[in-house]
């Protein structure tokens, strides 16, 4: 394979990763890392470096549209970023104290449970009337225009403290394992805080870029980001994310939920396998 063919092939794979990542609020690492290491035989360090670039590209590429359309909730994202950022910091501190093996197993089980709950919630999406003093104070409630339903959807945000706790855990896990940026965020937004599924994936999209930026800068300085590998990833993912962001509004809620649950099951099985194999 010549360098030119490599750039074109990686661009095409990354386009798909960006599209899927933008729709589901994930970073696209689940496609980029295996594709680069298995298909193109790239060193794992450069693959991880490229995947952190892909997280940021997905986030900025899609969130520009999501924020404008009010699909992503800026206030929710800002409040929860405190939890993810301090979680990531904690994770970096305690790395080495915890065995990654157990983390993979625990993380795999949490994701498996989340996917089951998210699948079940598909039937009960709707109005919530519980009290939410924190969300009231922080003015988190909002609305967005749903293109598929052709109406304005107003939603209330609940259990902000539970959400903060879960985001902290998500931050710790991503700080320790360098993964799972979106896989844990979307279930927390959907299950705990009762955001509509599209708002959950769009808000997760806005958030993942911020946490990834700090680690990406460290990777860059360490020499883990090879421009020749990261360039086609960034270009492909950006284009894919822009296309994905245009699609999200038009897709049905049940479609987004179904695809997300399927991917979540896949990630959870992978995690468990990694943990059990040791």
């Amino acid at each position: 394979m010549t360098p030119l063919q490599f750039e074109l092939a990686v661009f095409c794979v990354s386009l798909a990763a960006g599209l899927l990542g933008a729709l589901l609020g994930l970073g696209g690492g689940i496609i980029v890392v295996p594709a680069l290491t298995l298909l193109f035989k790239i060193d794992i360090r450069y693959a991880i470096g490229a995947s952190i670039v892909s997280v940021i590209a997905t986030s900025s590429g899609a969130a520009a549209a999501y924020v404008r359309e009010r699909m992503a909730n800026i206030r929710v994202a800002m409040v929860l970023e405190i939890a993810t950022a301090s979680g990531a910091l904690t994770g970096a501190f305690i790395a080495g104290l915890v065995q990654p093996r157990w983390l993979y197993i625990i993380f795999g089980l949490i994701l498996g449970y989340s996917s089951l709950m998210m699948f079940r919630r598909g039937h009960g999406e709707g109005l919530v009337t519980r009290r939410a003093p924190w969300a009231d104070f922080l003015k988190l409630h909002s609305s967005y225009y749903d293109e598929a339903q052709r109406r304005n959807v107003t939603y209330r945000v609940v259990r902000t403290r539970v959400g903060l706790g879960l985001m902290y855990v998500a931050g710790v896990v991503s700080g320790l394992l360098g993964i799972g940026s979106g896989a844990l965020k979307v279930p927390a937004l959907d299950l705990a805080m009762h955001l509509p599924i599209k708002v959950s994936t769009a808000t997760s999209n806005l958030m993942i870029g911020v946490t990834a930026a700090a680690s990406a800068a460290v990777y860059f300085r360490r020499g883990d980001i090879d421009p020749f590998v990261a360039a086609p990833v960034a270009m492909g993912v950006l284009l894919g994310a822009v296309i994905g962001a245009r699609l999200l509004g038009r897709l049905r809620n049940s479609t987004i939920r179904g695809v997300f649950v399927a991917i979540l099951v896949w990630i959870s099985v992978q995690m468990l396998w990694k943990g059990i194999r040791g």
Partner: peptide, 20 residues
């Protein structure tokens, strides 16, 4: 060329931080 790419990647990484 690769330095120009690296500059673009640095800008991409800086964007979310500038946003905050």
């Amino acid at each position: 060329g690769q330095a120009i790419v690296a500059a673009g990647l640095l800008l991409l990484i800086a964007t979310p931080v500038i946003r905050v």
